[in-house]
């Protein structure tokens, strides 16, 4: 397979939008999505000898990009340990979502429940997935890195704990907080449109 500068330019023309769009939805930031796409093209260009033409070019580039995204989420970005982070944010989390005057029970209104009652297929509709990407973007990066690992490779708790060097109990607290923040954001989106 001969890949020269000419082919490279035609890849950029043909696949940049597709790859960029995918990366953007995964990381939620324009600059970071651009970096990932750029790294993908670079790796593809360097590894062009290994492309044997059995998969389509698009599939091949996507496979490279997906690996870049996995690495992106694995990069430890913040130096504080997870347990310090969880301790420091515990109080504000509990004050936001639990009613201290009522034995610490949920303080949210039960009737705010639009998306779990939504029609089949709504959760994978363009509209809902747009809300989801907005809400993911707003999540604290510390929580998001762990939470997203759960879905990006459909990994079990044990592996994610090893990767991020966290205890199992901290892991479940992170998942719990992430889901709590996410559903609150999603309910708001649903109500506000």
């Amino acid at each position: 397979m001969q890949v020269n500068t000419l082919n490279y330019n035609s890849w950029v023309d043909k696949y940049t939008d597709y790859l960029f769009s995918f990366a953007y939805y995964k990381v939620g930031k324009k600059e970071e999505a651009e970096d990932l796409v750029q790294e993908t093209f670079l790796s593809a260009y360097k590894g062009r000898e290994t492309y044997n033409g059995t998969a389509s070019e698009k599939t091949w580039l996507m496979a490279i990009l997906k690996n870049k995204i996995i690495d992106y989420y694995r990069k430890p970005k913040i130096t504080d340990s997870f347990s310090t982070y969880l301790d420091q944010t515990e109080e504000s989390f509990e004050h936001s979502f639990f009613d201290q005057d009522n034995y610490g029970r949920w303080s949210e209104k039960v009737e705010d429940n639009y998306f779990s009652k939504a029609a089949d297929g709504y959760l994978i509709s363009k509209e809902f997935q747009k809300f989801l990407s907005i809400c993911l973007e707003k999540m604290p990066s510390k929580l998001k890195a762990v939470f997203v690992s759960k879905y990006i490779e459909d990994e079990k708790a044990e592996n994610i704990c090893k990767e991020h060097d966290i205890t199992s109990s901290n892991y479940w607290v992170i998942i719990f907080r992430s889901k709590t923040l996410l559903r609150t954001c999603l309910e708001k989106k649903g109500v506000l449109g």
Partner: peptide, 16 residues
């Protein structure tokens, strides 16, 4: 979330 990471075609495309 599973749909979010598996299926990019259901989302509105974004141009670079």
């Amino acid at each position: 979330m599973k749909a979010f990471f598996e299926n990019v075609d259901i989302k509105p495309p974004i141009k670079a």
